[in-house]
Simulated assay, not measured.
Amino acid sequence: MTAAPRPALTERDYRGAATPTNRKASAVAATNTVVRPGSTKRSTSRWAPTARKLTPYAFLSPTVIVMLVLMLIPVIMVIGYSFMDNVITNKNPVFVGIDNYVEVLNDPVFRTATGNTLFFTLVSVAAHLLLGLGFAMLLNSPLVGNVTKALFRVVYILPWLFTVAIIAVLWRLMLNPNGVINYILISLGLTDKGIEWLSSPETALLAVTFINIWAGYSFYMVTLLAGLQGVPADLYEAARVDGASAFQRFWNVTLPQLKPIIISMSVLDIIWTSQQFALIWMTTGGGPVNVTEMLSTYTYKLAFSRYEFSVASASAVLILLLTMVLAFFYVRHQKARD
């Protein structure tokens, strides 16, 4: 069997063939191709690394500008006002040094507000943690059905969904002398008449603290529930095999796994609760007789009730310093955790 004859090469095939001479000519032509100094290609390659480095800063610049205008500049202005006499009502304010800080620290109302803020903050944070952890463990328990868990999640998360204004109005109506709370207490025979929960010096601070606890435990519950669902089941199995009781499994397995989350949330909650203003202002306004006066309401009254803006600025700077201390510990903990 003979092979098929090969087709004859034409003159065009000879011209396009990759002969050594053609390859050499192509290489020389590529080598002799020189980019002009003013060309776009050379300019683009020169500035490309710099453009890549500046691109992230270009995306961040709007946020940085907003933060400078709305946060950094006002803070600097308030710090400057705290060293002057009344800067708003006085056309020519003068430098008075630390006189405003001395006045604030010697004010008995400021000391009362500091004590109220400490009580309000510490009790609220502790109750948030205990209630949030308890409800989170309940919702994570295998003894509760899925339908029941879904129902409880909706009920428990409701306080976190309400705005501060709604919470304040709701509890003012419920704690009214003719409200639902007093009606239930009178029906059960626990009291003979309606109690002025938000107007009595004996109960006002406890009442606003209770309202804040009710409004804030859901944040802990949701976060701790996510943490509980992330704990490996193998740890509980190993502890159960070793004969650990339910309390020992909770103390030696659950709490160590949730410790980073608990510390982070507690520090954040201390910062948020110590600066609580809207709830106090819309329920008691700091009264009666400064019983519920907080650092936030005290500073607000200095500025917009007594029009002592420089003294209010000094009080605000003191609150800022306290908050910065808490923020320092929070950032330090986060770095150690990472």
Rank of each mutant, 00 (worst) to 15 (best):
L122P: 08
A278L: 09
I211E: 10
A8Q: 07
R6I: 11
T2C: 02
Y220P: 01
S61M: 08
L295E: 08
E293F: 01
T63A: 13
V241Y: 14
L60P: 02
T191G: 09
S61R: 00
M67R: 00
F152H: 03
R172G: 12
M265V: 15
E202F: 04
M67E: 00
T114Y: 06
S305A: 08
V125C: 04
S218C: 10
N212A: 10
T40S: 11
V34S: 04
L143M: 15
F328G: 06
L228T: 07
D107Q: 09
I271N: 02
G285F: 12
S26G: 04
V34I: 10
M294N: 02
A204K: 01
T203S: 07
L151A: 12
L295G: 02
T10E: 01
G286M: 12
L70P: 00
P201G: 00
T112G: 12
Y81W: 14
R6W: 07
N178R: 03
D85L: 08
A226E: 14
R172D: 05
L206Y: 13
A215T: 09
M265G: 09
K91R: 12
I213C: 03
R240H: 15
A303I: 11
G145V: 04
I79Y: 04
L130K: 00
A3C: 09
P93R: 06
E308F: 10
I213S: 05
I98H: 08
I157K: 06
A27C: 07
Y236Q: 09
V155L: 13
G38A: 09
V69A: 15
M282C: 01
K193W: 12
F277K: 00
D242P: 14
L205I: 11
T2Y: 10
T40D: 09
N92P: 02
T44V: 14
P288E: 13
W197M: 01
V104N: 02
V208H: 03
S245H: 05
F119V: 14
S315H: 06
L130V: 10
D13A: 07
L205Y: 01
Y330A: 01
S141P: 07
T283M: 08
N178M: 05
P256M: 06
G243Q: 11
T297N: 00
V164R: 10
F277H: 00
D85K: 01
M67I: 11
R153Y: 12
S310Y: 00
I73M: 14
P288F: 12
L60F: 11
F95W: 15
N106A: 15
V144Y: 11
G227I: 07
Y57G: 00
A18N: 00
I73N: 11
F135M: 06
L326G: 05
R172K: 11
I184M: 14
A48P: 07
P20W: 02
T283K: 02
A316V: 04
